[in-house]
Structure formats: C-alpha cells, structure tokens
Amino acid sequence: MTTTAFPRVLPLRIRPALALAAVASALIATAMALVWAPTDAVQGDVQRIMYVHVPSAWTAYLAFLVVFVASVGWLWSRRPVFDAVAVASAEIGVLFTGLALVSGSLWAKPTWGVWWTWEPRLLTTAVMFVMYVGYLLLRSLSHDVARRATRAAVVGIVAVVNVPIVHLSVTWMNALHQLPTVLRPGGPALDDRMLATLLLGVAAFTLVYAWLLATRAALERARQDRWLALG
C-alpha cells in the first residue's frame, strides 16, 4: 500500500485562503453584530448574543450532516478520506454544539431568568451533544482502522436524525425557546439589518467550519498514512 493512493483532503494552497476568508468574515460579522445591527426593542442589547448563538447551532447541524454524508461514503467506497472527514466533522460539530449550548445559556439567564431548563429545544440539543461525544468515544475503542471506521459510520448515519429533531423541537409543543425566525413559512421575520448581520454571521461560521474541517481532516489523513505504513 502506498501513501499516495489517496488524494489529500484539500491542496495546501487552498487552506491559507480559507483561513483568511474565515478570519476576515468573522471580524466583519462581529463588528456588524456588536455595532451596526439595531438594538432589539424588547430584549435590548442582550439579543446580540443571537449573532453567535444561531450560527453556532447552524454550523453544528451542517457538521453532523457532513458526518452523515462522509459515513455513507466510507461504507460505500471504503476510501479512508471519508472516515477522515467524518471524524473531523464530528469533532468540530461537538465543539459548535457546545458553543451553541453555552451561548444559549448566557442568553437564557438575562431573558428567561435561568441558565438552563428542560424544555424541548434544550433537551434535544443536549441529547445531540451527548450522542456525538459518544461517537468520538466509540472511535477510541478500537485501533483497527477499518473496523473503527465502519462502527463509527453506522453511528454517524443513525445520529443524524438528531438534526431535524432539534430543529423542529420548538414547533412540537409549547416551549420557552422561540420559534424559527429565518427558516419559517412566509419568510424571515426580523429587521433587515438584523437579518443581514445574522446571515453574514452564518456565512462566517460556515467558512470557519470549512477551514477547521480541512485542517483537522488533513491531520487525520496523515495519521492514517502512518498507521498504514506501520501495517
């Protein structure tokens, strides 16, 4: 087996450009969120937490969808690059889910009066977080590269069901968490400048995710090559 049999995840020259785009858009999005966007009429300035909370949650959804696609890719083709993308995306997805939980908690305390409450959106998000932490723990149980990738892929495919459950949980019963404001029937229901700021935030977080994914997956590919070389 030669180490050149598998393509690199992304050519090295793309990653610096991705890093630059991610950092630049993050700086602009943060400035817009803290300065340019209007103050919420009801909640006041604390609503500005939305501009990191919602993009964190969106990026977590995206990351777990990528885990699903990469897991199918591994089971279908047995190409190691798919397993590298799956583990990278799961790890980053756990990070973004954690950030959505923490930023949500910091928003909940001044608006709801509590740091945490067991209402549907929070409960389902906590379950999603724990399931993907479990995915990462499962991977550490075996050092057989192919067996580990296959076991993980099965979990990666099953666990994606969390994404629509979390997203729709707010519509299933009377909840404390607010309903979808952007992805709703009838179009987005918020101020134009708020919407523009939120969308740029989502774009920035997506670029950060792409950069982290490329970097983390490349790391995993290098590990795979070393394991293959060791036989």
């Binding site: 300035d45 937490i49 001044p110």
Partner: peptide, 30 residues
C-alpha cells in the same frame, strides 16, 4: 454601560476564544 454587557461579552469571548483555542490545538496535534 449596556445592561447585560457581561453576558454579551462572555458569549462572544467564549465562542471566539474556544474556536481560536481549537485552531491552536490543531497545530500541536499529530
């Protein structure tokens, strides 16, 4: 001083600080 400024500052610092820490951790991992 904005009301709830501490909550806003904490949310932004934790989110961007964690992402920056993750980037740095990737540099140290092999």
């Amino acid at each position: 001083m904005t009301e709830n400024a501490a909550f806003i500052a904490a949310a932004y610092l934790i989110v961007w600080g964690s992402l920056a820490a993750y980037v740095l951790s990737l540099r140290g991992r092999r």
